[in-house]
Amino acid sequence: MNKPSYESEIRKYYTEMELGPEQIQGLLDAVPFAASAKRWKRIALVTSIGLVAMLLLTVSLLFSNSTFNSQHSNQVVNDKVEIERNLNVPDIVEPVLKQSNAPPVEYRLVAFRSHNNQCPHCRATGLVFRDLTDSLNEPAVEMQEFDLSDHAASAGIHQKIREWKLDSLIDGRAETAFIALTDTKGQTIQEFKPSQGTGEIVKQVRKLINP
């Protein structure tokens, strides 16, 4: 009878060799615990990473918030300084600030009459100017009549003429009556005569102020 080959002998030798049941049981019991430990380790790692990320986010938010607050407080301080500066503006500016809602005055339509109603030219000028006051509804145009024959109000009239810088307009015109459109600096844009009529004057004024 032939003896089996050494290969089968070796195979049989190793195959019959087995680990004891107690040791096998111990190792097999360790497997699920190891898997659980690994899972919990992974969870702990992920949680730690999440916590670190949240911490970094919180710190960055706090940092950015403090930066914003400092900028905002600087802005508030600047605004306060600006407000205080505005409060120290002279009284002459106050009416302008109060009327800030109204459109600014860019033109002035003025009428000068030397003899009130005693002369026909002055009387006609007064009539036409009153019609212009009613019909010309332009917020950018400020209208004012100067009756140079009113000696009681002479001081106030001359004061107003100086304020509006209209001295150059009436210089050399001792006895006259006319209507003129000027800018706010007192520069004459155009003069009108009462003979032109109210409608024509209104048309020309509107054409000049709205080119």
Partner: peptide
């Protein structure tokens, strides 16, 4: 070896 592998990988 089993304990080492289980500790590292969670399974064999």
């Amino acid at each position: 070896a089993c304990l080492k592998v289980l500790r590292q990988q969670g399974t064999l």
